[in-house]
């Protein structure tokens, strides 16, 4: 494992912890898109089907369990927790899941490396992860005041994706490899979706003002 991959995984872990911290201690999910969280739960459920069939490493298995557990518990908190669910911006979080899920499933059925159930599900998870942040970005744009934790959550997620690109570049030059167009293109598209957010995030940080995305 190289330093970019480890930093990427740790940033991903940090993003989940920031979100759980906000939900668990402040008991608020204001500004958090349930749609995005449900899509991530689906991403992990379809990608980690190999958790029961292939053993890669203890690290790999533990991280998979953390991402599965955290994504489903975040969804549970927002939907069912007595206090947390009241802070959910239901009227603002209107992005329709199926507009992302159906095209991703169709694309996975036609563009994949192997036509097996596990492989198509894995490819679907890559496509879906690439666009799963969209409901969250739309919600941020509609929210006039983005709180620090929500801003940091999205920033850490974007940083994780960017670090994975460096990891692929590093692996390309240092390891025997196959060409993984699907993984790479989906990863680059996903990172590009954060470009606009990053711009405003750094502007607000530089000028020391509250983060606000233009409508």
């Amino acid at each position: 494992m190289n330093i970019f991959r480890l930093a990427g995984d740790m940033t991903h872990l940090a993003s989940v912890l920031v979100l759980l911290l906000k939900i668990h201690t402040i008991k608020s999910c204001a500004g958090v898109s349930l749609k995005t969280q449900e899509l991530y739960a689906l991403v992990f459920a379809t990608r980690y089907l190999d958790i029961v069939t292939d053993f890669i490493s203890v690290y790999n298995t533990v991280m998979k369990l953390i991402f599965l557990g955290s994504s489903f518990s975040i969804v549970w908190y927002i939907r069912h927790h007595r206090v947390v669910r009241r802070s959910y911006d239901k009227d603002q979080d209107t992005f329709r899941h199926y507009l992302l899920m159906i095209p991703c499933m169709l694309l996975a059925l036609f563009v994949h490396e192997k036509f097996t159930f596990k492989e198509v599900m894995w490819t679907f998870s890559l496509y879906l992860e690439a666009v799963a942040i969209l409901p969250q970005l739309v919600l941020l744009q509609r929210t006039r005041n983005i709180d620090n934790l929500t801003g940091q959550y999205v920033f850490l997620l974007g940083a994780y994706r960017g670090l994975y690109i460096f990891n692929w570049i590093y692996r390309y030059f240092t390891e025997p490899h196959f060409v993984h167009w699907i993984t790479w293109i989906a990863g680059v598209v996903q990172t590009l979706l954060y470009a606009d957010f990053f711009y405003y995030y750094f502007e607000s940080w530089k000028n020391n003002v509250r983060l606000q995305l233009p409508a």
Binding site: R5, D9, H12, D50, D54, I56, S57, N60, M63, K64, F67, W122, Y164, N167, R171, E175, P176, H177, F178, H180, T183
Partner: peptide, 10 residues
């Protein structure tokens, strides 16, 4: 079975 390196990623 071919080696499939990105599968060890998360």
């Amino acid at each position: 079975e071919e080696e499939y390196d990105v599968k060890d990623e998360l």
